[in-house]
Design a protein around this nucleic acid. Structure first.
Length: 603
DNA sequence: CTGAAGTGTCATTCT
DNA sequence: CAAGAATGACACTTC
């Protein structure tokens, strides 16, 4: 039996159902999705009509070529979808049986509102439809998708235009979009990011941000093609960056920001905004726009809406099908290295591919890493793991069937696909790179969380890592965990501890370096001081020698022999004996003088 | 594209 | 002896 067969068989044993690999099965699903797409397309068409109507109310800025709302611009909500997110749209339809995939929606939007100029896609800002929404409506994703600057709150600022409520169809369309896990993922990820920011606010976060809104590309706004709403192109997203400030006066922004926390979705909208426009929020809070207070508002408001930490999210019951749960699950999907690609691999149905996906279901770190790196198809990876394989009934089977040996068997899979994925995504550059660094830790945590969730470990990662040994053991003893779960928990704890240790180690190392540099400086100063002192001493010594020599000569010149003649310094020298007496010693007859004793006259 | 910096992880050793 | 700390080395990501 070759390796493929082994892996294939293992997949089956691990609970991967045959349909996972069945191309026909997926074809059927695809057809169903196509039907849903058509329905969605109709709805989106309505949306487009409404947006066109809204565009008619917009005013062309003569200077910038932007279309702006005629009266005091409302605080618009920005449509933002990172290219990265777009590319990660993989087979989530399993999770959303009755909803289109995110990609499909985007594609629909793109088709419905064709881009007339690829690069400088104009931005039509729907400043009315979203704000007009009632707070009960799921404003967040709507805000994120509606073509308007993304702002923390969909709360409507004073609207000059007559309120235009979304048609039921339109709302339904948005509702379906909201249910997409990708959106939830983005929201959730940003939720965590925001939490992180809240927990450890950087004092310079607001000041360091470039408050210059013009920093963002505005080119797309000058093309005057705002009659078309393009929701899906990356360029479009970029243009929104610039459009945000131009259409959102500070006062409106502040209004919206202060209202942001009123709803969970509102709060999440801010997070969502932040994820796509890392600078947008701080900029809105920047002093230049008189929003310093608003940032604190926003920050202080966040806790009012009990933020879901990663642990909190995880702590939700795995069976909890709430949006939050979904969000958390999806939010944990790593972005760049998630291994999720929008490209549907032709090998999607191949057992080999699916083997990876199934294998990743096991606890092993490497396995999970491989899963992350797996370039696999839409049906593999996370969607497969969670939608297909991650079933409570299957879980124990897989966990028990797959011993550590089985896990190890798949641990050492090549990771060469990671870079490929990055390239495949093709969009994950420019505007969305800034928040990736901050997310990296989240990604790490998410992976462990994901692993823990995959194995239904009833603890939070934070608990696993931070609990004292006794408490940890006690906690472990209270739950019946199988071997894989135990191993994963230990690994998570080990990694967590080691991560902290590494951080401490590096911190110490840096402190040592700094200390050594300080010591080096002080030593250099000491050296300089000593050299200077030495130089001074040398000078003093030389001076003293000169004085002594002068005194010596002076004394010598005063010496006279019995005949009154002076002694020559070249012939005699003065020497002091141990008893203090000074003698005049002839230089050339030194030996003689010494031997002859005291015949020389005392000085 | 390349190199530096930051970070997570693993292996190993020490406490 | 187990758990954790410490640390070198490596891989990866980001800039």
């Amino acid at each position: 039996m070759n390796l493929i067969d082994i892996l294939w068989k293992q997949d089956i044993d691990l609970g991967a159902r045959r349909e996972v690999f069945d191309y026909n099965h997926r074809q059927k699903e695809h057809e169903l999705q196509r039907q849903l797409e058509l329905e969605e397309e109709k709805r989106l068409h309505l949306l487009r009509e409404q947006e066109k109507a809204l565009l008619a109310q917009l005013q062309l800025d003569e200077e910038t070529g932007e279309y702006i709302p005629c009266p005091p611009p409302s605080a618009p909500l920005q449509s933002a979808i990172t290219p990265l997110e777009v590319t990660q749209n993989v087979g989530f339809t399993e999770d959303n049986r009755d909803a289109m995939s995110f990609d499909e929606c985007l594609q629909l939007l793109a088709e419905t509102f064709p881009v007339e100029e690829t690069e400088n896609t104009s931005v039509c800002l729907d400043t009315t439809s979203v704000p007009m929404m009632s707070p009960e409506q799921p404003a967040l994703p709507l805000a994120t998708l509606s073509p308007g600057p993304l702002l923390p709150s969909p709360s409507p600022p004073p609207q000059p235009q007559p309120p235009q409520r979304m048609s039921p169809d339109l709302e339904q369309a948005w509702m379906e979009l909201l249910s997409l896990p990708e959106l939830q993922q983005c929201l959730n990820m940003q939720l965590e990011d925001t939490l992180e920011t809240t927990t450890y606010p950087l004092p310079t976060s607001s000041e360091s941000q470039n408050p210059d809104y013009t920093f963002y590309p505005m080119t797309g706004l000058t093309e005057g093609e705002t009659n078309n709403v393009n929701v899906c192109s990356a360029e479009f997203m970029n243009t929104f960056d610039g459009s945000v400030p131009s259409l959102a006066p500070p006062d409106n922004l502040s209004q919206m920001k202060t209202k942001a926390p009123q709803l969970h979705t509102n709060y999440a909208a801010e997070s969502f905004c932040d994820i796509f426009y890392p600078n947008a929020i701080p900029e809105q809070s920047s002093g230049q726009h008189g929003l310093e207070g608003n940032e604190s508002d926003t920050m202080s408001d966040i806790p009012n809406k009990p933020p879901f930490t990663a642990a909190d999210l995880y702590s939700l019951s795995p069976g909890d099908v709430s949006d939050i749960g979904k969000q958390s699950r999806m939010a944990e999907l790593p972005d760049s290295d998630s291994g999720i690609s929008s490209n549907t691999s032709p090998n999607a149905s191949s057992p080999g591919k699916s083997v990876y996906g199934d294998g990743s279901f096991f606890y092993s770190d490497s396995d999970m890493d491989e899963m992350d790196h797996n370039p696999g198809s839409a049906e593999s990876d996370y969607s497969e793991m969670f939608s297909i394989n991650f079933q409570p009934d299957d879980y124990h089977l897989t966990a028990s069937v797959s011993g550590p040996a089985g896990q190890k068997q798949q641990e050492k899979k090549p990771k060469q696909h990671k870079s490929d994925l990055m390239e495949d995504s093709g969009h994950n550059d420019a505007p969305f790179t800034k928040d990736k660094r901050k997310k990296r830790s989240d990604v790490r945590l998410s992976r462990d969380e994901q692993r823990a969730k995959a194995l239904k470990i009833p603890f939070t990662v934070a608990m696993i890592i931070n609990l004292p040994v006794d408490d940890f053991n006690e906690m472990m003893s209270k739950h019946q965990l199988n071997e894989a779960q135990l191993a994963l928990v230990r690994d998570i704890r080990r990694r967590g501890k080691n991560k902290v240790a590494a951080q401490n180690c590096r911190k110490r190392k840096m402190e040592n370096i700094v200390g050594l540099e300080g010591e080096l400086d002080s030593l250099k100063e000491e050296k300089e001081r000593l050299l200077s002192e030495k130089s001074q001493n040398t000078t003093n010594l030389k001076e003293m020698k000169q004085q002594l020599n002068s005194l010596y000569l002076e004394v010598f010149s005063m010496l006279r022999d019995e005949k009154g003649n002076s002694y020559s310094p070249s012939d005699y020298s003065l020497q002091q004996s141990t008893n203090g007496s000074i003698f005049l010693v002839p230089r050339v007859k030194k030996t003689f003088v010494k031997s002859t004793g005291n015949h020389l006259p005392p000085v």
